[in-house]
Amino acid sequence: MKPTAKNDRIPAPEERLLLEIRDLVIHYETDDGTVHAVENLDLRLRRGETLGFVGETGAGKTTTALGIMRLIPSPPGVIKSGKILFEGEDLLEKSEAEMRAIRGDKIAMIFQDPMTSLNPVMTMGKQIAEVVRLHRKVSEKEALAIAGDMLELVGIPRERIHEYPHQFSGGMKQRVVIAIALVCDPSLLIADEPTTALDVTIQAQVLNLMKKLKQQFSASMILITHDMGIVADICDTVAIMYAGRVVEYADKASLFTCPVHPYTVGLFDSVPDLEDDKEELNVIPGLMPDPMDLPQGCTFHPRCRFAVETCRLEKPAMREVAPGHFVACPVRAKMLREHPEQNAGNEGEN
């Protein structure tokens, strides 16, 4: 089951690869024009690893996640090209029925807002049991028993199995959503901003629960977020996404100590410093490009202070600047090669 990668843009130990996305292109074809939601995206995820997927709203994080699930709303969404190799098999070549068997069983998803991601007229137990019965040959009674076990596992008393979503608080609902996602023991868990809709104290609880259960179920996880704090807390590797592409991909330590891509550097710069008594935040000048009209070459070049002529013309390829640290910025990669002592990120001028 080894995927034979030819264009090794993000090489990784092959035998442990769970998910590999190659050159994925997803467009939304609307009447007003084509939205380039995901452009030539490459990504790898090893077994047991947690990958943080960071980017602004509209960078294509959720679209990528839905693409892996093959749940892009169509029309207008179209997966134009690319490969999504999951356990060595290309998900884009699967039939709809095969995908249905994978969804919820091998790949599960946790949605952003627990308030709306549960069916309001179905009891919690039935909602968990439904997933079990979709993927396992068990009776309704056995499925409900499994549902009860899952509820207890996420810290909800078994007696509440017959209650409806409106009788649960937001944090508890998200626990149920997590139970639904994990009940079939998936090998990949995609969490789309799982804590954004929760208040801060509950966020920590839910994150800890996810961290614990992820290990217990030995699942891999893609965590979509725009909170660097969450990334620092539970991720192993991080992919920074900008305008439909991964611009930097590295293990957490290397990314946090030495961000290379100008966008990543800008992201870290914009995090307010508790010690520093500043009036204004450091921001990246400009706005995200209109996804219907992406700039030529590197999509970040209009906002980039390092931009040179080639940035306007050539799409930057991913380059390894340190073991396991990939950056789609030849300019910064070169700077780093020539001045390795210069620690990127600590030179905020803007």
Partner: peptide, 20 residues
């Protein structure tokens, strides 16, 4: 969103229409 969630756990169209 719970319809999307139902898709995400592998429910078929008919099941989603009639059960959800």
């Amino acid at each position: 969103e719970f319809i999307e969630a139902a898709h995400a756990v592998g429910s078929s169209d008919m099941r989603i229409i009639f059960k959800h």
